[in-house]
């Protein structure tokens, strides 16, 4: 067999190398991980889905909007952070779309961001009847993913009165439910304390059903 010129030989080895590595790192490896993940961590691997009344009601890791069909926030639900994850051209109040994850990317001195912050602040203050100066930062900023399932404990506390009034529930009962759904830092120091909005709202709906509200 006559020997190929070196440079062709190297490219031939390169082609074969890519094929072999694709089979191993792009075939065997991900399938192995997927197989073990589906066998051992089925719930997590499929998106940590939560059910209500026997039907899938969302993922505990993704925010969802609690609005009426026009996009107005529903007073009987805790509201997530403002979201930029929306299909291009969609109306406001329809964020939390996992097909469009992402952030606003507005700079710290951008007048457009200042305007957004001010209008979120005014809306939040009016909706929850709290002074504008007391509105928590996470309620007036958009998250990194547009899918943030959490709000800060302060943000949740500020919404308690409004939710309790809308559901005709005692404030104390709603407050203790918020406390139960407040996650502290992992191991005491990783991350930040937070409240999962979807899980809290599902618990509220369950509570309202049992108490006839």
């Amino acid at each position: 067999m006559s020997r190929l010129p070196t440079w062709i030989g190297q490219h031939l080895a390169a082609v074969r190398a890519i094929i072999v590595l694709t089979l191993i790192t792009g075939g065997l490896y991900p399938l192995l991980v997927l197989g073990i993940a589906q066998a051992a961590f089925r719930n997590q691997a499929n998106g940590s889905l939560v059910t209500y009344n026997g039907k899938v009601a969302g993922s505990s890791l993704l925010c969802q909007e609690f609005t009426d069909p026009k996009g107005n926030p529903l007073p009987r639900y805790f509201q997530p952070r403002p979201s930029t994850a929306a299909a291009p051209g969609s109306k406001t109040g329809f964020g939390c779309d996992p097909n469009y994850s992402g952030a606003s990317n507005l700079g710290p001195n951008n007048p457009a961001l200042l305007k957004n912050v001010q209008s979120y602040k005014a809306a939040y203050a009016a909706f929850n009847r709290v002074p504008p100066s007391a509105v928590p930062p996470d309620a007036v900023t958009t998250s990194a993913s547009g899918l943030d399932p959490y709000i800060s404990p302060q943000n949740a506390a500020d919404q308690v009165n409004r939710v309790a009034a809308a559901r005709r529930l005692p404030v104390g009962e709603v407050r203790s439910l918020v406390a139960r759904y407040t996650q502290s830092r992992t191991l005491g120091f990783l991350g930040e304390p937070r409240v999962n909005v979807l899980l809290l709202n599902i618990a509220l709906d369950k509570l309202s059903v049992t108490s006839g509200g």
Binding site: A103, P108, P137, Y150, G191, R194
Partner: peptide
């Protein structure tokens, strides 16, 4: 930054869980 000062914290583009 003007906008972040108005918000009260540099939480624009950050997730609550990580802070």
């Amino acid at each position: 930054g003007t906008a972040l000062r108005a918000a009260g914290a540099a939480m624009e583009g950050k997730n609550v869980a990580f802070g």
